[in-house]
Nucleic acid binder design. Sequence first.
DNA 1: CCGTATTTGTCCGTATGTATG
DNA 2: ACATACATACGGACAAATACG
Lengths: 230, 230
Amino acid sequence: MPSADTPLRALKLVQSNSLPMLVQKEIERMILAGEIAIGEWLNESALSQRFSISRGPVREAFRSLEESGLVRQEKNRGVFVREVSVEEADQIYDLREALDELIGKQVTACATPDQIKVLHALMEEMDNVARADDVSPYYALNLRFHDRLAEFTGNRKLVTIYRRLINELHLFRLRGLSQFGGLRKSTDEHRAMVKAIESKKIEAAGRMFKAHVVASRRRMDKAFGRDKTS
Amino acid sequence: MPSADTPLRALKLVQSNSLPMLVQKEIERMILAGEIAIGEWLNESALSQRFSISRGPVREAFRSLEESGLVRQEKNRGVFVREVSVEEADQIYDLREALDELIGKQVTACATPDQIKVLHALMEEMDNVARADDVSPYYALNLRFHDRLAEFTGNRKLVTIYRRLINELHLFRLRGLSQFGGLRKSTDEHRAMVKAIESKKIEAAGRMFKAHVVASRRRMDKAFGRDKTS
DNA sequence: CCGTATTTGTCCGTATGTATG
DNA sequence: ACATACATACGGACAAATACG
């Protein structure tokens, strides 16, 4: 019976991954897209019915999602979308400072001309939406920009860790309502970062990348009306 | 039938965690202790029988273990203990350089006298076993030393990430046979690190921690007979 | 405080896919 | 190359725990 009723079944034909992994990806997408609210309960049987599958694969997907930090599991109660506290977001930013500095240095050391072209293309797009103060697409492009940078290090473990941190930060952002703003300044910083990469100054690029994270954090603090004394 | 035959059943009474999580911890322990060899296949039904449970919880534990990087899962074939390649170990060391630098700075910024005492106690123990060139207990103490340091940052996300990296590095070490050696130099570096913490010089401590990772990596390279040109 | 309904936790049977003789 | 044996993948049913009236 080839009835592609659910989006999952359709994916199944394209991708050759296991069912639990497909479910994991789909739930991850739903969470990050805000289709499931922060703190909301994930009903096992409801999800399995929605995907027209059994509860086993859903449970396995839950385990993966917990390990990757997107959900929290309460014994005999169920799983819930994690709510990232301010303190945790702060700690994640500390990590990002260190990791982005590393990314800056590594990419500067080994970036190919093609990769730099990709960065320029993304910056171009960001410039356009920034001029229109179009926050939502800017946010998406910004994510891709940083994701590419992480990829260009060639360090797969770094990419995995970095993506998880970004996801949790996204979870935090979903908690509050506003986007961060400061688009122009952000593009300026991006330009400076890529310029540092092109000039092959490793340490300078590292400092630049780190400074960008520090500035991002400030913009976030501001958007959330947090004191900036320390 | 209250027969506490398996160690898992015993644990169940002490800890109140879920069965999949207990299985996860136990398998993790078995892997890190080398009871399951690198690349070895983890038999679902064999493990479930060993623990006197069904295969469901074991499968869920597998998903967690995969996400935490200890096992690799092949579709329709089973899960295997991951073999960490030299390239990957290299990349993990790059990450450790960045993370340990962060740890050094943060601990220096916020360490309490009690915490510093703990570090001194661990160093004392390490000195003793190092004098006897007792590699195996030194290795364990060294792990605890660095784990405590990570904990003392108060950054839980950092601790999680750091532990996973250390686990994978341990997996890599299990591949080769030898311990790394260079115990005396290692203790000297530890002393310098703690001294930096006590002197409250944040940047200096950061450099010191990073240098320790660099030196550790060199010792490992040497133990594995790798060229050290780049 | 107790009984009931719902949900998670666990187990087992069957199908599908893979390796081997 | 084919058939057989075996392991995983998934679904469905039962048991235990929690929440609610």
